[in-house]
Design a protein around this nucleic acid. Structure first.
Lengths: 115, 115
DNA sequence: CTCCTATATGCCCATGTATTCATATATCCG
DNA sequence: CGGATATATGAATACATGGGCATATAGGAG
């Protein structure tokens, strides 16, 4: 039960849903997600921790950067199912499509050194 | 997006999940749900309203009673999908199975007049 | 209409959550 | 080592949420 609730709570915030939709396109570092959402960096880190605890995302260190990608579903069947659903959901949502449109142009080298 | 968030928030509370699992067995009135959960009656009414606003349950008046059943999925595709998933999920959870075991014995006539 | 019962709503309180700022940690480079 | 950069953590604050009590609403019985 707690595991299920953790996944549902993680999916109950629009900014976290936006993060998942972004990561559905490609792996991203924290500063790239920050640029896409327009939030403060600590806020993004906390959202990512909540998503990670729910098994919805995984992180991979690459030097100074931390790359986040969608979870593989091993840690939670609920997360795996919902990630599958989310691939088809919300693509027509104006907020989502606006953010997804700028994902290809997110460049960590252009973003991070200007924080 | 708001519709999706509404469904996820509705599913983010253990008592509301328990209500859905109970209604998966059969239609129930408020006092029967109250007896199953052990909560105050107004609390149950508020949970039911949140579930109804998300499209997860529907109500049907029958005289003095209000019978709640699972939503038919017409109001929200997200609710419809999650209700389908929930049918298979959490059946082995101790909290859930304990409540489901007593659903067949819930009797509105025996419960409600003793409030 | 009056009384009774089942449910809904308003108010209040305790707790949880999202956010930001300031600061700590970690990693690379010289 | 020391400095710079990317990310994480802690404290503080505004707001949302779950809970119960008191009360309002709605429908049936007499």
């Amino acid at each position: 039960m707690k595991e299920f609730i953790r996944v549902m709570k993680a999916l109950s915030d629009p900014n976290r849903v936006k993060i998942l939709k972004m990561l559905n396109r490609r792996e991203l570092c924290v500063c790239e997600i920050q640029a896409g959402l327009g939030l403060a960096q600590p806020t993004v880190s906390k959202h990512l921790k909540i998503l990670e605890d729910a098994g919805l995302v995984q992180k991979r260190k690459e030097g100074l950067w931390v790359n986040y990608r969608l979870g593989d579903g091993d840690s939670s069947p609920y997360a795996a199912t919902l990630l599958g659903n989310l691939k088809h959901w919300l693509n027509d949502d104006p907020e989502i499509s606006a953010i997804l449109a700028q994902v290809p142009d997110l460049n960590r080298d252009a973003i991070c050194s200007r924080q």
